[in-house]
Design a protein around this nucleic acid. Sequence first.
RNA 1: GGGCGCUUAGCUCAGUUGGUUAGAGCGACUCGUUUACACCGAGUAGGCCGGGGGUUCGAAUCCCUCAGCGCCCACCA
Length: 918
Amino acid sequence: MIWIIIYRQWLERIPHTQANTDSVIIVLHKKFLLGIIGLVTLSKAYNAGSHEDRIYKEWEASGLFTPKRSKNKKPFTIMMPPPNATGTLHLGHAVMLALQDVMTRYHRMKGDATLWLPGTDHASIATQNKVERILAEKGESRHSLGRPAFLKEVHKFVKESQKTIKNQVRKMGSSCDWTRERYTLDPELSTAVREAFVRMYEDGLIYRGNRIVNWCPRCSSTLADDEVVYKEERGNFYYLKYGPFTIGTSRPETKFLDKIIVVHPDDKRYKKYHGKTITVPWIHGDVEATILADKAADPEFGTGAMTITPAHDFIDFEIAQRHKLEVVQIIDEAGNLTEHAGEFAGMNARDARGKIITKLARKGLVEKIDEEYVHNLSICYRCDTPIEPLVSRQWFIDVDKKFGAEKKSLKKRAIEVVRTKKIQIVPERFDKTYFHWMENLHDWCISRQIWFGHEIPVWYCTSPKKAACEKPIVSRTTPKSCPHCDGKLKQDPDTLDTWFSSGTWTFTTLGWPKRSADLDYFHPTSVLETGYDILFFWVARMILMTSYLLDEIPFKTVYLHGLVRTREGKKMSKSHPETCIDPLDMITTYGADSLRLSMIVGSTPGNDLRLYEEKIAGFRNFVNKVWNASRFALMQVEEAGVSLKKRPPAKAKTLADQWILTRTQELIDEATRDIESYSFSEAGTKIYDFTWNEYCAWYLEISKGPEQNIGVLLYVLETLLKLLHPFIPYVTEVIWKELGHTNFLMAASWPKVEAKHRFKKEARQVQEVIEVISAVRSLRQENNIPPSQKITLHLSGKGKSPLLEAMREPIVRMARLSELTISTKAPELAPVLKSYSNGIEITVPLKGMVDLEAEITRIEKELSELKDYLNRLGQKLSSKEFTGRAPAHIVEAERGRQAEAQEKYSKLEEQLASLKKA
RNA sequence: GGGCGCUUAGCUCAGUUGGUUAGAGCGACUCGUUUACACCGAGUAGGCCGGGGGUUCGAAUCCCUCAGCGCCCACCA
């Protein structure tokens, strides 16, 4: 019953239904039935949710994500920055996956042996912290469980997280090779990491030393320099009397044993004290203090004199090293004061500060307290706990030690590969940041007092009997007993910095240290795509590690994307969930394709990108547009009775065909070049514009006329699907199947420009006609002529008649005309509406339906704008400097513009005069 | 303190080596059911391209300078 009503309504909408011969009815029945079939198979709006998971499964099952190594193909490799195996996918991941998938799919279609290797990172501190927090909720801690049981908990947690993350990576449509998936703690990678450590130790690049390190009392671990972040803090600054000196400090609790006063060698005030020893009253009684001259003291700061605490300050530690001074620990690993603090021993150092000051004040040693002192407090980037610098025995990588045939340090090599452009950073300006960081790099502390991670392959003899037993045993395999005395061994309890293992990610994932076929073929990798925030953490470390272990670069190009921000420009942070957009929610609502496009179009490398729901919705609309354009094309195919299996060739029959074919070639050319130069946003925008405006708004509309060309229609559509596929893989793949293909679009080859489809002159001509139709539409709207009212139109222009005649049908239809006359000269009619475009005069006879006043105002405005333009052009062209110095083609082009504007101006003037008469 | 970036339409942003009267999406306004799409179509308004100076025949684009915003690094004993 419903169908009959729909059928009736539909029948009424068809023009000429009054022709009720049987044959017409039969044709109409057929059309209606085809329509229903169309509705059943292809819904009116694209529903991403009902296709994406199925398509992904098909891709994955097809094996197309796995590249085949071949001598005839170029390898293209991207190693996915492994997401931490701790949480869920966030927008940062989504950006990276979108960009990497664009590159991967593009290169795969281009015919390269394309490998995108996925994986997860164990992220030692981050993961351990997370599990500790979960345990704390149950009243447990890692210490209450003990190391083996705790690690078991962590591994259980990681397994679950990995499952989640991996499914979310799939949701984004990532075409990565799951058969090669890796985890930084895989047994193979652990072996590789061990190998790396041993080699570097044997070559003297890794050493163990007592050095001052950043210590997080909460994590009970060291932190690398760049794992420390700073927070501005307002606190007290104390001026303390120290014999004849006044010294300033913000941390009196470290000063118990201070007995070295440092002054600048050139500071005249203190010259007389250099090298002298004096007795000064101090916290626990008198102290013998020595005055030392060192440039580290700034005469301008405070009183110009300072005491030093080598064990708890980086600068002080360096001074102590220079002058071979004693280093005594005042604060322990828990952040508490040691026995040197006397009655304060055992107290938390920071908590004791007030009490210590009280004692000093009682002794009359506090000169004054500045309460408005603002300084940067260093805190742990993982848990925000204030850092205690302290001296401890750790493992380091020596970045200055020269090695290899070239006798160059790690630092030097890492700088060179970027300076000589062996590694290209996109955008280039990050070179500078990189150099600055690298040049100031200190030895890298790689040991962490964390349980979860790669264990350090070092053992110590527990009961040393000979001198040789004191030496640590560094070994690829686990030794059974001390090689010197046969005594029992204990493994170093520490683990390696997470970045030590991820620094080897590009090659350990390919089988290193084995010389695997994969390693030979896919390394160095092509592109490393990641956020600029981990340029130092990770990118720099990879360059260091690879240059030593492989004597190679890890990748040829580094593409850095920005941070995802809210519409207001704020960081999306987990602590403010209301500012966060969950990528999975967006995928559910708008589809992965829309989310991907919203992160690629309008974003440029190295710059942050603001994301908000309306933006994603906008791209969902585009995805739907592509869907409907395809539906329309399919309807045309069916109506034309063409079989998809035996489709006609893309051969131009009309000017419009020639135009769209030419424009398609131009698009292929430009989009390809944009992708090659990492301008993904540009490429995406161009394809988007072409699809929506040129293909849908003009070519498809023209195709609704009698002169359809199914061959061209399909060729352009399929070319667009290919160009769009790296950006919006799902919808394009679904449509590809609907177009009767049995293979996958993801395996189709990237379009190439074909000379036979280029018709430059004709393309330009059609462009003129398009502009004429637009001009007519403008005239109509401005004069409130409704679309339902068809109008009479005259078009005239020298030499334009053949073109206009050739396109008469689309002009009549798309400008909604009742009659069109074409001539070389405009008819003498008044009053009329007029417009000009590309030397074509557009005349609409008035039939008393136009607001003359409004039209006069409009023309006057246009004339005045035109006059300004002509003045500027005139000035330019009359200037000898311009005509003499500018390239000839530029001058020519300007002359052409002048002539055209001049003609338009005089025609409009005539028109104005005639309107005023009427 | 050192370095980097941003400032373009009401909002979010493009603008590749200097060369049409500076573009897009969203939003606003006016029209509108025509063989796909209202997640649509047609049209309109809206910009001293942060300020000033310079180089050049020509600057949103290159140089200098100032201002506002943001980021990174170093760090004040």
